[in-house]
Design a protein around this nucleic acid. Structure first.
Lengths: 191, 191
DNA sequence: CGATGCAGAGAACGTGCGTTCTCTGGGTAC
DNA sequence: GTACCCAGAGAACGCACGTTCTCTGCATCG
């Protein structure tokens, strides 16, 4: 098992545990047990828990946005509704517990600046992704529309986690379609 | 100092500390120091930290919703925009760090069922409050509109915390007005 | 076959923290 | 004045956990 495999095994274990139970509730020893990596090797790769936490968030940022972007690319004619279609699938996954970044921010945002930075960067990137989707629309204020879609995305993630109801994605999608339709001053696209 | 005063002093200290830094990052001893209550008396009133945490959330649920409801009552002709007007004021308060319930849910929701219950109850009550505001509107699906307003409220709270930008409330308010206008099939109210 | 080095297992260490215990001092009743 | 009670201060306890250290066994190399 070389260093890269070790990293992957550690991050897989860390992601499963941290996302499910929160970061402070999970001990290093549990990450070691689940990953099957020895403590010595763990500390060679991540000299402190803080670095494991940040690596977990950074990797999840990449994979989450790649999954979203991939799904949207498969639905090019309906990109904005597709965002919420993908969210619905995500919300319905077993073990869904909201946005890992929102959760980490609430838990550690004020006490671990590194965590806060990664969270802000993730959400800025998501907002940029949405801005790209509205860039071609004929609207007067692209930023406002992108912000509003982002609020619906964030709100539905958190709302679905608290209520346990994946259909929050449908509510958000309906709202998004209304906002897009109104902003494009009534040129209906698909619905 | 009788029991009620002690309770208030403890909850004041707990609320300030837990909200600012997260629950697990704050030790009982710090609550004691800030409140000025002796450890013995603290444990007479709250026999375990769990109970202090739940009492903190319950009291904040009441005061937060009372503040919102009070502000909305002062703006009866524009109740729904007023919700977001109040949010804007809240977001701009020094020390604003998002919704205490969302933060607590992310930190402890999967490991402390009592916390998860209080968070769900809080958000259900907020959603009911919004449902009351749309109840008199001439729309076909009151539930859908109330859900959408709730998503905007939750999204803007979280979004404002992460970005540090109180104007997220304005973005949410604009979206809410569009949704209300469209749902009332184009009977414009104020804007 | 013997010596060396390295990796894993897990014991050990230090600290922080939730909770409980002890001691002390002052106020009150007789 | 003396005995008793109670509250506060903070020491003590037990445990959990992040981090480091030690020991053991095996593989590699001469």
């Amino acid at each position: 098992m070389d260093v890269d495999e070790t990293r992957v095994a550690l991050l897989d274990a860390a992601e499963a545990l941290f996302y499910e139970r929160g970061i402070q509730a999970v001990g290093i020893d549990e990450v070691r047990a689940v990953s099957g990596v020895s403590l010595k090797r763990l500390y060679q790769v991540f000299p402190a828990k803080r670095q494991l936490v940040e690596a977990y968030l950074l990797r999840r940022d990449g994979s989450w946005r790649a999954r979203l972007a991939g799904y949207v690319e498969d639905h090019p004619e309906n990109a904005i509704p597709a965002v919420f279609g993908w969210l619905r699938e995500w919300f319905a996954e077993p073990g869904f517990r909201g946005c890992a970044f929102v959760n980490s921010f609430g838990e550690l945002g004020s006490v671990e600046p590194g965590v806060a930075d990664v969270v802000r960067a993730h959400h800025a990137a998501v907002r940029e992704f949405l801005a790209g989707l509205v860039a071609d629309l004929d609207v007067t204020d692209h930023d406002a529309l992108a912000d509003q879609l982002w609020l619906l995305l964030v709100g539905s993630s958190t709302g679905a986690a608290i209520t346990g109801d994946p259909s929050m994605a449908d509510r958000a999608r309906d709202a998004a379609e209304v906002l897009v339709n109104v902003a494009t001053s009534g040129k209906p696209r698909s619905l």
